[in-house]
């Protein structure tokens, strides 16, 4: 089920985010890694070291592109220069799918460079789905939208976040990048049951799953990507793969980045929950909570 049209019918297993502090280790040690996720915008430049390093990675590894600033939910039209550069990069990386966030971040041409929460309204459903469709048609690749961590909600919302996600994905006919850490962070901040969210997501649309660590503050949880994955997030992950099957999974670690081996080993813990590739038997659900 998890190799589907939203991830190009691939079975990539567990991957790691490609980060500059790990370049030397990767080139020297050539670790065995299922795939690397890159932040598209870091490589949407005309030349120099960023593209030279990427080309070296592409010689040896599979790469999937993840974006942070298309802003599908912005009331503005999608930035056409951004789309053109993104498409050029997809030709270079041969990424089987492209992901970005279910959020907004710019208006009237001014950018926040943040993943801002959307009001869950029917108007936002229509606008966001139309933008995703436009991106998908232009890029000629499947697009997966990622649920974001959020810290605010709006009076004008007309549905839950998971209802909004499903509506957008269905109308855009796109995939979902299910970030179970973001679900946990938002559930804590807004007071909903994260399992209800995971259980409601259209499993057949899930192209990829993100796991990550977050930070705890007295009154809220913050999506900082600077910790190992916490137990409640592993529990959500286990439930997600029970529903979605063996799905490409990526650990995000973006700040206070430890050694490559530490990041990779943390990511590989996902294999405890993923149905294994060759066994032909689903192992999902066979791991106790203690394993995390």
């Amino acid at each position: 089920m998890a190799a589907n049209r939203f991830n190009g019918y691939t079975d990539y297993g567990v991957g790691v985010g490609l980060r500059i502090p790990h370049y030397d280790h990767i080139f020297a040690e050539k670790p065995s890694v299922g795939w690397f996720e890159i932040i598209s915008e870091n490589y949407m430049v005309d030349g120099g070291q960023p593209l030279a390093m990427l080309d070296r990675i592409l010689e040896q590894y599979r790469v999937v592109q993840h974006g942070v600033s298309l802003y599908f939910g912005s009331a503005d039209r999608l930035n056409q220069e951004h789309l053109r550069r993104l498409k050029a990069l997809t030709r270079r990386t041969k990424t089987p799918w492209v992901s970005d966030h279910l959020c907004w971040g710019s208006v009237d041409g001014t950018y926040s460079h943040d993943l801002l929460p959307l009001p869950y309204t029917w108007e936002a459903v229509r606008k966001t789905a139309a933008n995703i469709r436009e991106a998908q048609e232009f890029l000629e690749l499947p697009v997966a939208v990622e649920n974001v961590s959020s810290y605010a909600e709006f009076h004008c919302s007309e549905m839950t976040e998971w209802e909004f996600l499903n509506e957008v994905a269905e109308r855009a006919d796109c995939g979902i990048l299910l970030d179970v850490n973001n679900i946990y962070v938002s559930s804590w901040n807004h007071g909903f049951d994260p399992l209800e969210y995971v259980n409601a997501v259209e499993a057949e649309r899930v192209a990829q799953i993100h796991i990550a660590g977050h930070s705890k503050f007295e009154k809220y949880r913050l999506d900082t990507h600077d910790h190992p994955v916490l137990d409640p997030v592993w529990k959500l992950y286990r439930r997600a793969v029970e529903r979605c099957g063996r799905t490409a999974t990526l650990l995000e670690w973006d700040d206070r980045i430890p050694s490559f081996d530490e990041v990779h080993n943390e990511a590989l813990k996902a294999n405890r929950y993923l149905p294994q590739e060759m066994a032909g038997v689903s192992l999902a659900g066979a791991v106790s909570d203690d394993a995390a």
């Binding site: 810290y151 605010a152 009076h155 901040n189 009154k219």
Partner: peptide
């Protein structure tokens, strides 16, 4: 335009952003 949550007032939520 923002709601309060059980733990944070709307202004505190905006302040995070």
């Amino acid at each position: 335009y923002m709601t309060d949550s059980a733990r944070l007032e709307a202004g505190e939520r905006l302040a995070i952003y």
